[in-house]
């Protein structure tokens, strides 16, 4: 039963992921990316990682994609003013993406173990995850929070206009 759901979700998420890169209209791409996130959250749920699955939806589908959509709607991009890339650049892109795919594949085949992946464990529940984060992995956890603060301060600095500009505008 779980296996079937896994294959259905997996197949659908591959289809939506291909839709992301094949649509000409960026709005459709964003919408299919949202669908992909939902399907991946479904995969997390299958592995009983409830916290991860809902955080994936809140952060990626709920917050980041809304901002993406926001920017796309305001810029009103369409395929007329999309710059055409030279064929050389395209070839380089395909080759580097292929190398990345090979790396992923080799990493995955060496650790492939179907039984282990689908085994239900309680590690993904909020209580266990929180305990792990605050005991065993407390240092990486705090370091990543510092990274987040740095990113926040940076975005506030960019968003804040400097004083002189404001005075010029007011004058």
């Amino acid at each position: 039963m779980l296996n079937y759901i896994f294959y259905i979700l997996g197949g659908l998420s591959v289809i939506t992921a291909i839709m992301v890169i094949s649509f000409r209209n960026p709005i459709y791409s964003v919408l299919s990316l949202i669908a992909t996130f939902f399907l991946i959250s479904g995969q997390y749920l299958l592995m009983n990682a409830q916290f991860l699955s809902i955080v994936n939806i809140i952060v990626y589908a709920g917050a980041i994609m809304v901002l993406f959509l926001f920017v796309l709607m305001l810029l009103n991009l369409n395929n007329i003013n999309e710059p055409l890339k030279p064929i050389k650049l395209k070839t380089i892109g395909v080759i580097s993406a292929g190398i990345l795919l090979l790396t992923f594949l080799s990493a995955l085949t060496s650790m492939y173990n179907n039984e282990q992946v689908l085994q239900l464990s309680d590690i993904g529940l909020v209580k266990n995850l929180g305990r792990l984060l605050f005991t065993e992995y407390v240092v990486p956890f705090e370091v990543s929070s510092i990274l987040f603060i740095a990113a926040m301060v940076g975005s506030v600095l960019i968003g804040k206009r400097n004083k002189e500009e404001k005075e010029v505008e007011n004058a």
Binding site: Q50, F51, I57, L69, M73
Partner: peptide, 22 residues
């Protein structure tokens, strides 16, 4: 009765904006 009840609500609330936006 899911373990993450409140987070589910927050998740759905954050999805609620799509209908209006689209």
């Amino acid at each position: 009765d899911v373990d993450i009840g409140i987070l589910y609500i927050l998740g759905v609330v954050s999805m609620g904006v799509y209908g209006i936006m689209i």
